[in-house]
Design a protein around this nucleic acid. Structure first.
Length: 554
RNA sequence: AGACCUAUGGUGUAAUUGGCAACACAACAGAUUUUGGUUCUGUCGUUCAAGGUUCGAGUCCUUGUAGGUCUACCA
């Protein structure tokens, strides 16, 4: 493991340790991750996944995966499949089959009847607008619905009628009977069930009434005997209702604990906004490498291990936090530096001719695959008179003594090959460099250098005759502002970075052409790149995963 | 306005629960280097404010201040 395990407990672990010490649930720990299948998982979800799975693991417990699918209008099976895939990819295995809140619709309905029979819920004929008006306001008590005092028997009859499809959408709802003056607005007789004559992605037309979040989530936790229900801070106010229902229904007392969600610079994590980016054509889809989705980050090449380490190391607290992209990228480099083989590819090629190298001659040079991991071995590199090097590695005039790349009169080492001496260049009428001319020191061959020439700089290069074309997609953050949502006066779309994607044709080592989708490499001196699924045998496509750190100023 | 939550370097997270404020990232400087990468060393800089309790307060109390959340038949 590249990341040492954290030693101290976070506040959730402290609370759980307390429960354990008090003998709660006989020492059993069971958590759950409850996504709504109406979109793809993003970096913020990853945090919740990691917290739920890691904490359970730490205490020898298990974790369920449950689709919170109580709203037939927005949910799709396509999303279910992707969510499952993402969690597995992150490296986690939930216990048993995937659960669905919709599997509990019968039980939930029975629980609703129980509440009705106890006089703790009623059917309300008020319109949505009327219910809103009854709600009161912050600091202003609400008013009782005129239907609040219907008898349990009447409520039961009406609720059964709702289920039987006797009423139209919106004509009736089931409400909990709590307190219209409660300081927590959520306890002012919240709506529990609504009528929706709409097909559900799993139950089809079986139901025309569907429970709301507050009458599905907590109850599902109880049904699954979840001991600790870990969720983000915005559900704090729901906890009062969560607990009220546990008592009213006399069901298994799961304990909800809230933590602060993780925000990351240059990423947005609103599913609605992510969807908008797709609809507006700003990105190509949920798995566009510029997206904050796990599908996007995976396609871009981020290793699951790096995302996991990032989520773990950023900790669990109750305060608002804004994580830097720097740390995420550090975690990515940390893993890829260890794992990725080094190859050479020239992103902006310019021809370099070694004038004293015999025309038509080719030799094979040895180069290590990964200096961090000797077991990765070496490979052969073809070398001949004509090469490609990076345009930015040449200056018509040397800059200063801190510059040790190519310029007239300068000596540089070609990685794993020879030291060359820059003689001059050719250019077109516009002054663009079209060719760099050099001579080489025949006795400076890598590994057996007796030339005595010292070259401060080492450049990557590729043999022109055998080089293969690569499509390389270079990414920058999707936004020009680290927190595009934090401008109340401006739309987040105003902060779209016009340079978020640049496509270039690079010259790469031939071996790169046969790399498999998802394979990652370090392109020497440039960054980590990962093979995109758009690749064809004719045209391999590489995504920039993350650039190398560079202390070069110039 | 009411209720609830939060406050430690630039960012994030710790602090044996009242005992020398530390770790990571970032930044800066240097060493090593056939990647201006990696690795190594060093520097920088922190307890929201004011009172109080105490031999001793980041930690406990009081009062402020700042930020966040909540009035969907979404989750």
């Amino acid at each position: 493991m590249s990341t040492p395990p954290k030693t101290s407990d976070n506040f959730i672990e402290e609370l759980i340790a307390e429960d354990l010490a008090n003998g709660k649930h006989g020492g059993r720990i069971h958590t759950r991750f409850p996504p709504e299948p109406n979109g793809y998982l993003h970096i913020g979800h990853a945090k919740a996944v990691v917290i739920n799975f890691e904490i359970a693991k730490k205490f020898g417990g298990t974790t369920n995966l449950r689709m919170d699918d109580t709203n037939p209008s927005t949910e799709e099976t396509q999303f279910v499949d992707n969510i499952q895939n993402d969690i597995k990819w992150l490296g986690y295995t939930w216990v048993g089959d995937t659960r669905y809140a919709s599997d509990y619709f019968d039980e939930l309905y029975q629980l609703a009847l129980r509440l009705i029979d106890k006089g703790l819920a009623y059917v309300d004929d008020s319109t949505a607008a009327e219910i809103e008006a009854q709600k009161g306001d912050i600091g202003v008590p609400g008013t009782n619905s005129p239907f609040r005092d219907r008898s349990p028997a009447e409520n039961r009859r009406l609720f059964e009628g709702m289920k039987a499809g006797e009423f139209t959408d919106g004509s009736k709802v089931l409400r909990a009977k709590i307190d219209m003056a409660h300081p927590n607005l959520l306890l002012r007789d919240p709506v529990l069930y609504r009528i929706k004559h709409e097909a559900h992605h799993r139950t089809g037309d079986t139901w025309c009434i569907y429970p709301l979040y507050d009458f599905a989530h907590g109850q599902s936790d109880s049904i699954e005997q979840i001991t600790h229900s870990l969720c983000s801070l915005e559900f704090r106010h729901h906890r009062d209702l969560y607990n009220w229902l546990i008592e009213a229904l006399e069901i298994f007392p799961s304990r909800q604990i809230e933590f602060a969600r993780m925000n990351v610079d240059y990423f947005i994590t609103s599913k609605r906004k992510l969807k908008l980016l797709i609809e507006e054509g700003v990105v190509d889809g949920w798995d566009d490498p510029r997206m904050s989705t796990l599908a996007g980050l995976r396609r871009k090449g981020f290793p699951a291990e790096a995302i996991r380490n990032f989520c773990i190391d950023t900790g669990v607290t109750r305060r608002d936090n804004q994580q830097t992209l720097d740390l995420l990228e550090f975690k990515v480099r940390e893993v890829m530096n260890r794992d990725a083989d080094r190859y050479m590819a020239v992103l902006d090629p310019v021809k370099l001719v070694i004038t004293n190298y015999p025309d038509g001659q080719t030799e094979q040079l040895d180069t290590e695959n990964n200096p961090e991991d000797e077991s990765r071995g070496t490979r052969a590199l073809p070398f001949s008179r004509e090469l490609y090097v990076e345009r930015s590695d040449f200056r018509k005039e040397p800059q200063n003594r801190k510059y040790y790349r190519l310029a007239p009169g300068k000596d540089v080492r070609l990685k794993s090959a020879y030291i060359i001496h820059c003689e001059g260049h050719e250019e077109d009428e516009a002054g663009n460099v079209t060719q760099i001319n050099c001579t080489y020191y025949p006795d400076s061959r890598s590994g057996e250098d007796t030339s005595g020439v010292k070259a401060k700089g080492t450049l990557h290069w590729v043999d022109a005759a055998t080089a293969t074309d690569l499509e390389v997609r270079l990414y920058e953050p999707l936004f020009t502002d680290p927190t595009p949502m934090d401008h109340p006066d401006r739309d987040f779309l105003e902060f779209i970075n016009p340079n978020s994607l640049t496509v270039v044709t690079a010259k790469g080592e031939q071996a790169l052409a046969s790399a498999g989708v998802g394979e990652s490499f370090q392109f020497l001196r440039q960054g980590y790149f990962t093979v995109d699924p758009d690749s064809t045998t004719d045209r391999p496509v590489f995504n920039l995963t993350v650039g190398l750190k560079s202390s070069f100023k110039g």
